[in-house]
Amino acid sequence: MKPLERLGEAKTPDGTVLQLYRHDGAYLIRADGVELMSTRRHLSEDKLAEVACAPLVTKPKARVLIGGLGLGFTLREALRHLGPDAEVVVAELVAEVIQWNANPEYALSAEAMADPRVRIVHEDVSKVLRNNVGGFHAIMLDTDNGPEGMIMKENSRLYATRGIAATMAALKPEGTIAYWSVGDDPGFVRALENAGLEVKAMKVRAHATSGPFHTLYIAS
């Protein structure tokens, strides 16, 4: 049996410990010992980018925001659906997560991050939203485990009333917000609808053939 190899450790502003591991060619990040994401299960993260970015494939100078770099799957999928003049802004709160993805020794996101369309911002996505009013054709938010599955408390404000309002304000006309959630959250749907958004829910497996279902909320 191949060992679990710890490659790095970081702390979020609220003290949550993130650890990067490698096991039998796969990578995973744990938050206080709980698996947060893995390269073995990422179909729902791919789908998040597809539903947000596929409609923009012919959009000149499309500009999109990804909240949370993770292991880079949403970024890589977004690039597949956007034109050569697009811009993908990725906001990541934890510097070490950016460093892990950029490390060419790991099979993560070094190539995608070097794409000229990509701009990585070491910043809380909430601040990026506030600083880019009317700035994005699509916004993809995959921070933590979604509105109810919080591991890092600093992410919770993104899903509250003010966070929803700031996200809406950062959209261009006819823009789309795509939220990733570990499961269903009817209360969050009501909050989005109360803000004036039309919401569609989509169930997607973590892996193409097995594993749990995650929920994507597409709001426009």
Rank of each mutant, 00 (worst) to 15 (best):
E123W: 11
G8F: 01
K153M: 00
E9G: 08
E87M: 00
R30W: 03
T143E: 00
K203L: 15
V94R: 03
E96W: 04
Y217F: 14
R157Q: 08
V199Q: 12
A31I: 04
A169P: 02
R205P: 08
E50F: 06
P13T: 09
E92N: 01
S109D: 01
P3F: 13
M150G: 07
P84D: 03
Q19D: 15
T16G: 04
E45G: 07
V89F: 00
D115N: 03
G149I: 05
Y159Q: 07
H207F: 03
G211I: 05
V64T: 12
M140Y: 11
L158K: 10
K59L: 05
D144Y: 03
E154M: 00
R76M: 12
L171Y: 04
A191R: 11
L192V: 11
G15E: 11
T58A: 12
M113W: 01
A165G: 13
D142T: 06
T161P: 00
T12A: 11
C53E: 14
L56M: 05
E87P: 00
G135T: 04
R205Q: 09
Y159L: 11
V89Y: 01
E174Y: 07
N103W: 02
A208L: 06
H207V: 01
E198W: 02
F213S: 07
T161W: 03
K11E: 03
R40D: 15
A195Q: 01
T215D: 13
G175V: 10
A191S: 11
L4D: 13
P147K: 13
H81W: 10
P13W: 11
E111C: 09
E92C: 03
A52W: 01
V199S: 11
S38I: 13
K47P: 05
E174N: 09
I164S: 08
V128P: 03
L82S: 05
T176D: 07
G196C: 14
E154P: 00
R162C: 10
Y27N: 15
A54V: 12
V89D: 02
V97E: 01
L18Y: 07
R40N: 15
Y159P: 10
P104L: 12
L93D: 07
A165I: 09
L36G: 06
K11S: 01
I29V: 14
A138S: 11
L36A: 07
A102N: 07
I164D: 12
Y27A: 15
H23G: 09
V128Y: 05
A91D: 03
L65R: 09
A78H: 13
L71F: 02
M1G: 08
P104A: 12
